[in-house]
Write a protein that binds this DNA or RNA. Structure first.
Length: 360
DNA sequence: AATGCAGTCAACCGCGCCGCG
DNA sequence: TCGCGGCGCGGTTGACTGCAT
């Protein structure tokens, strides 16, 4: 038994809106508002449209101050940064771009931005790879292993990562990322990009603040359910979020693959980076895009990178919360990792604690 | 000029969430 | 507590357009 249709499909017009329909809808809403009931609205106006269709038309096209096309470089950056961080949460991304709709951003991403990034990445790959990655990396790991002073709370692997000059950022692998876990294979290789020390203290800290604002204490299950509207001005950007209460665990339980690490947590269910890497919860496509970002840092897009820095937890361990971001550990959603280690299957050597249970 | 193809984007669809009775 | 209905979201579709052949 399916859900009852929201309207009488037989007597509802579909397809493109006529100027007359637009005018009717716009005039009515501007005068009376939506009345809090989209389903009933078309009947009131005398439109043979589904209420959902009216809502969409208003939100995406008729509502005041809507911008279409002409995305700026800065908007590109914000979209890309947020996509890397939170995935295809278009409504959340749209909330940070005044005048933009989720539909617009989604289309823009799918039709242009993604291709633009992937195109650049493939071009780079054709340009050549650093042949000595593997050898150099192995040597460095061996050296680091010898040199490192052990910590009871930091895994060997994480220390290697923290100490390695070959670090580069890879987005964190949400345990409930809505894609099946995939470990990057040898068919996809990342040239190693040197970190730019400017990143850590760039003026793009505003983006980080934005993400904090968006994320709040996502790991806090005692969050309220009240929707709030907040806004703040950081540097040049004014951000507002009207859809998320500050403590909503938006990643919680979206996916049954909530992992409980054994022996590799820092505190409060935070999975260590090594555990996350073991799960490899990201798609090749995302990996490609992320790699593309890394590459583009040297092409003037390093402003993306303000948020792509490693976390500095007190234990020196990069980590991620099981349920999403830990606000006080902002930055922990993203981790540093020599990606070559992933594809070379080196993690097994350094992550003896790589055992986990599926909690659900 | 006709046809095919790829890109773009408005609109639709299905489903999860949430409030309410 | 449960079921229903509306809202909002993300994924997908299909019409349209421009370009290449």
């Amino acid at each position: 038994m399916g859900r009852a249709p929201c309207c009488d499909k037989a007597n509802v017009k579909k397809g493109p809106w006529s100027p007359e329909e637009d005018a009717k809808l716009k005039a009515f809403i501007e005068q009376h508002g939506t009345g809090g009931n989209w389903i009933a609205l078309p009947q009131k106006i005398g439109l043979k449209r589904c209420g959902k269709s009216c809502r969409l038309r208003w939100l995406n096209y008729l509502r005041p101050n809507i911008k279409h096309g002409g995305f700026s470089e800065e908007e590109d950056n914000i979209i890309c940064s947020l996509y890397i961080s939170i995935g295809s949460r278009w409504s959340i991304i749209a909330a940070q771009l005044p005048g933009r709709t989720d539909n617009d951003i989604k289309n823009y991403w799918n039709t242009r931005l993604k291709k633009k990034l992937l195109g650049k990445q493939r071009k780079e790959q054709q340009g050549g790879r650093r042949a000595s990655n593997t050898t150099t990396l192995k040597q460095e790991i061996n050296t680091t292993k010898k040199d490192q002073t052990t910590s009871t709370t930091t895994s060997a692997y994480d220390q290697i990562i923290n100490n390695s000059s070959l670090n580069r950022s890879v987005p964190l692998l949400y345990t409930n990322w809505p894609h099946p876990p995939l470990i990057p294979t040898s068919s996809f290789s990342y040239p190693i990009i040197q970190d730019d020390p400017r990143d850590l203290h760039s003026d793009h800290a505003s983006l980080r603040k934005l993400l904090v604002k968006l994320g709040g204490r996502f790991s806090d299950n005692t969050s309220t359910t009240t929707t709030t509207t907040t806004s703040s001005t950081t540097n040049d950007h004014q951000f507002s979020t009207t859809t998320l209460p500050p403590q909503v665990p938006i990643y919680e339980n979206n996916n049954p693959i909530d992992l409980v690490p054994l022996g590799s947590t820092d505190h409060n269910n935070n999975i260590t980076m090594s555990t996350m890497l073991q799960t490899g919860c990201f798609t090749n496509e995302l990996a490609e895009i992320v790699y593309s970002f890394n590459t583009q840092r040297s092409e003037g897009l390093d402003c993306f990178y303000g948020i792509l820095e490693s976390s500095g937890t007190s234990s020196g361990e990069s980590c991620c919360n099981v349920n999403g971001w830990g606000a006080e550990n902002m930055g922990s959603d993203l981790i540093n990792c020599p990606s070559a280690m992933i594809e070379q299957g080196m993690l097994q050597d350094y992550v003896p604690e790589s055992r986990y249970l599926a909690s659900q």
